[in-house]
Simulated scan of single mutants.
Amino acid sequence: MLTEHALFAPGTWLSKPVKVVLDTLELMNLQNIRVLDLGCGVGRNSIPLAQKVKAFNGTITCVDLLPSAIDYLLENARTYDVRDQIRAETADAEAYAIPTAYFDYIVACSCLEHVSSVEAFRAVVSRMIHGTKENGMNAILMSTEVQECLLASGEIQDGRIELNMKTDSAFADLRELYADWEIMLEKQLPQKIRETKYSQEIEFRGTWITFIARKR
């Protein structure tokens, strides 16, 4: 398995799951729970979620645009003995049809900043809302106000990301869309990540937002 796809490898962005995603799961009844992980990648969150629900007959539906990501996800599911808990689909989150009131918990982590427009963002969130059972929860985590600093020159440019929302605008849209829900958490943190991109050393800068809500 390629290093960049190896789950829980020290020193990589896959070294551990996102804590709040797992903490939110603990607030729910796990028996027969249905979880949807939009933009699942190779299973950074899906595999630990599956481990937690395995004893409760729970399932994780995992959706990613890249067939290679789904292949690595399934390999990881076998490695961590949760293959029976994983339902994997290759699909674009922007167009993915979510059955009405079907899931107990829907996670979109590092996913919604890759849709094509604000209208698409709102449409996906609306489908998440309609696809959630009563008392179910949604967790949205995404990068906003992304910039890339070229370290050699100090030049700063807008991040090359599909949907580069302002932080305040993202929160405003989410509060409007989830007006009938109980908002459990709103949080923002600055991000700075150094990486090699376009054959240059850059510093990825932005604001990482977390929004968690429960359907009343």
Score class of each variant (00 low, 15 high):
83 R>E: 15
97 A>M: 10
29 N>L: 01
184 M>D: 02
11 G>F: 07
10 P>S: 11
29 N>H: 09
127 R>K: 11
11 G>N: 05
70 I>N: 02
63 V>A: 09
186 E>K: 06
68 S>I: 14
19 K>Q: 12
145 E>H: 03
125 V>N: 02
11 G>M: 00
134 E>A: 12
146 V>C: 13
99 P>H: 07
128 M>K: 05
29 N>A: 13
84 D>N: 15
85 Q>E: 15
127 R>F: 00
144 T>D: 05
72 Y>L: 04
96 Y>G: 04
163 L>A: 05
91 A>P: 03
10 P>H: 07
76 N>E: 04
27 L>H: 09
121 F>G: 05
176 E>S: 11
51 Q>D: 08
214 R>C: 07
38 L>I: 05
215 K>G: 03
119 E>P: 00
156 I>P: 08
168 D>A: 14
156 I>C: 08
115 V>D: 00
157 Q>F: 08
86 I>L: 08
60 I>Q: 08
42 V>Y: 00
138 N>R: 02
175 R>I: 07
89 E>G: 02
54 K>H: 09
106 I>C: 07
183 I>Y: 05
8 F>Q: 09
136 G>K: 00
125 V>W: 04
38 L>N: 07
135 N>W: 11
37 D>H: 03
149 C>Q: 12
208 W>P: 05
36 L>Y: 00
42 V>D: 04
99 P>C: 01
157 Q>H: 08
120 A>L: 02
198 Y>C: 14
109 C>H: 14
199 S>Q: 15
18 V>W: 14
30 L>Y: 06
86 I>K: 01
113 E>K: 02
52 K>C: 01
195 E>C: 13
139 A>M: 07
134 E>T: 13
175 R>F: 05
117 S>F: 03
113 E>S: 10
187 K>P: 00
209 I>K: 02
100 T>R: 11
39 G>D: 07
20 V>W: 06
14 L>N: 09
49 L>V: 10
193 I>P: 00
216 R>F: 13
100 T>W: 09
7 L>S: 01
191 Q>T: 12
77 A>F: 10
71 D>Y: 09
110 S>Q: 07
132 T>Y: 05
214 R>K: 15
31 Q>I: 10
55 A>E: 14
34 R>N: 09
10 P>A: 11
11 G>I: 11
84 D>F: 11
141 L>W: 03
61 T>R: 10
